[in-house]
Design a protein around this nucleic acid. Structure first.
Lengths: 170, 170
DNA sequence: TGAGATATGTCAACAACACTGACTTATATC
DNA sequence: GATATAAGTCAGTGTTGTTGACATATCTCA
């Protein structure tokens, strides 16, 4: 083999590291905004999913975030007390608590989404550097790549969740 | 606009979420191995970078990880005491502590890298689903995409760091 | 050589966010 | 009415991050 590819798995090894750096900066953007509100990443995640999937139940949220109900409750309580998220009793099952963003919650969620979407859009659009090319289908490729990174057993659940959103668009 | 793209930024919005799920599973793999050793993610990150860049100094490591020296020291101490990482006094500057993996450290790092590289390799190779295609240059595209996700000011530093590794390959 | 900068190590306190285990309340289901 | 389920809560713990203060060894430069 040539000098370039001497070490096995070099390509993937580089990606491991790039994923670390990329994710670090990706969550760094919202961190600055959240700090102004006294919130952390845990609050962000809750706000994000409630904003995108209004009417989410506690159980569904726990399944998405993969944390315990005690951990969720701590941050959810903050968000509710400060008026960013509202609870409504389920209609078909009155044991459930359906979660919704208030106007303020939706606004904050939009701010957070904006900075992250901006970084992503730039990353997909920029020619980056000499020799690097991201074809017009970059967004589709990225979508496909990230989906494949998800544990196979759980891809269906993620697809199902995300399909909820696309529906109401027509 | 059509029914598909009603909401502005839908593509990027989906990617935000997929990045969350993908990263969750990506770090989940090593977590299971680390737990057997009583280590956490912080230990993983230190071990990873010391393994890949032997002779790294404390200051360099702090710059990469973006944590305080107190935080680093806690986990670094564990790794040194348990024989996974070794320190050597710098030659040109005797104040510096150059970090190296022991045999055991390199073995553990290799185990951790293996599971993550496997997931990445699969994600780049798999046709994922009907309609989705990842061209042969998938690895290059992913590399380019992730690099573009990094804060522009810091890309040079990341490139410089990663260039260290490629050198010795010939 | 001596003053000051730099690299590292360490002590103490604290905060965010995760965990386990145990228990309660309200509601649904059979 | 017995049992299961959805959610809320109390108490304790662990990891990983933070600040602030200070110690030690070594380098650099006037």
């Amino acid at each position: 083999m040539g000098a370039q590819a001497d070490r096995a798995g070099t390509a993937s090894d580089d990606l491991i590291e790039l994923l670390f750096f990329a994710y670090r900066d990706f969550v760094g953007d919202p961190d600055r905004i959240l700090a102004e509100y006294g919130f952390g990443r845990a609050h962000h995640r809750v706000l994000h999913f409630v904003d995108r999937y209004p009417g989410l139940t506690i159980a569904e949220l726990l399944d998405i975030l993969r944390i315990t109900k005690q951990s969720l409750n701590r941050v959810l309580k903050d968000l509710i007390e400060q008026g960013y998220i509202e609870q409504k009793t389920g209609t078909s099952d009155r044991r459930q608590r359906l979660l919704f963003c208030s106007r303020a919650g939706a606004d904050l969620a939009a701010d957070l989404t904006r900075v992250q979407a901006r970084r992503l859009a730039r990353a997909l659009a920029d020619p980056v550097e000499a020799g690097e090319t991201l074809p017009s289908g970059a967004s589709t490729s990225a979508h496909s790549f990230l989906l494949s990174m998800i544990e196979p057993d759980e891809r269906a659940a993620v697809r199902r969740l995300m399909a909820r959103r696309t529906k109401g668009a027509a």
